[in-house]
Amino acid sequence: MNFKSDMKTREKISALLLSAGIILALLPLTGNRSFSGKPEKVLSEILNAETFFSVDQVARFIVTEDSTIQLIDVRSPEAYRKNTMPRSVNIPYNDFIGNDPDKYLNNRNIKNIFISDDDYDSSLAMAYSKGLGYSNCYVMKGGLKEWTSTVIESTFTGERISARENALFETRIRAARLFNEMNSLPDSLKLKFMESKKFSAKKLDGGCE
């Protein structure tokens, strides 16, 4: 055993570790994450037209029970209770920002579509998610205001309807029916439904369990 060279190695490792410790102590480390990637790239993803789904597209997802879609309503629980989008879950915006988004967005095979009254909160939630690296996030363009005026209050005027218009109109009617059925439920049933849709914190796998 070469004691001298052992000592030198130990001194080197100790010096390295102590320096690393001093550097880390001076860094503004927090337990939270920061956005990842280049700002220009994140911005272009946020502004990309493909990040926005129209209310008609969302209506089709609802009517066809598309399992690759998750609707996330970021309004307050009171607003959500008043007007509940079918097949949606409610994560108020302040809860979404305050918690680790991984528990809501960790399934990369699912498209998460944010919904709010207009585009504001939903776009903020989408921008926040994309910044943290969740590319599978989208916005329902126009929010519930657009949904109400286009889907719920949809009417057809004119003498002739093309096949395409007919299909669109049918989807809107069916989606509106689902919406109205959901919102005509008594409060107690609605609350039960909302409870069943609540996210529970997904535990990380690991440890000795």
Binding site: S34, F35, L43, I46, L47, F52, D119, Y120
Partner: peptide, 16 residues
């Protein structure tokens, strides 16, 4: 005029 644009740009500038 588009709230989505102002929201997205705000988030990026704030995070920078």
């Amino acid at each position: 005029a588009d709230k989505a644009i102002s929201a997205g740009v705000w988030m990026i500038l704030a995070q920078m």
